[in-house]
């Protein structure tokens, strides 16, 4: 046992961040407490709720199920990284607002990450594909239908503005 610190270098939302972390520090705690990126939420802390989803090297993973030290040398995209470069909400985020796809907002960062990864892979997903993609994310306000609607709206908008405001993690 030790509280030894380990040097890590993680590219977070396009910026290289270097810090010293104890091995037990989860990636989500590192993002929130060390890097002050509080957009990623902590829900269950054991891999059930999906609120802490981030992109690791472009693929959605649960940041509570990884230790920060394991992310050394990798790229992480958080919900902050989904915004436009000027900080305004991206098309997917706007679509969530417009379709009332959030009530309390706790699950929203995870939903956005899951939906973003889906739309990066499938440009025009079916309802079933959307439901599978967000199947690992719990919403306790039971807003799933509006979330599906928002992802469909974003897909439609992105197809007409394919290059504007939508970045691949």
């Amino acid at each position: 046992m030790s509280d030894k610190l380990y040097p890590v270098a993680i590219e977070v939302n396009g910026t290289r961040r270097t810090l010293q972390v104890p091995a037990r520090l989860s990636l989500v705690d590192c993002l929130r407490d060390e890097l002050r990126l509080t957009g990623t939420h902590i829900g269950c802390e054991h891999g059930i709720c999906g609120a802490c989803s981030v992109l690791l090297d472009g693929e959605p993973v649960r940041s509570c199920l990884m230790f920060a030290v394991q992310a050394d040398g990798h790229k992480v995209t958080t919900v902050e990284g989904l915004a436009n470069t000027d900080g305004t909400p991206g098309i997917l985020q706007d679509s969530f607002c417009e379709k009332h796809a959030l009530q309390c907002g706790y699950c929203t960062p995870g939903m956005l990450i899951a939906a973003h990864a889906l739309l990066a892979e499938i440009k025009q997903p079916t309802d079933a594909e959307i439901r599978v993609a967000i199947g690992g994310n719990l919403c306790r306000c039971t807003g799933y239908q509006q979330i599906v609607d928002a992802v469909k709206l974003a897909a439609a908008r992105l197809s007409t503005q394919a290059t504007d405001g939508f970045k691949n993690g």
């Binding site: 046992m1 030790s2 509280d3 030894k4 380990y6 104890p22 091995a23 037990r24 989860s26 705690d29 269950c44 802390e45 054991h46 230790f67 030290v69 394991q70 050394d72």
Partner: peptide, 11 residues
């Protein structure tokens, strides 16, 4: 809900 301390080695 935080892991206890441990040492880490990347093989």
């Amino acid at each position: 809900m935080k892991a206890a301390s441990f040492d880490y080695v990347r093989a």
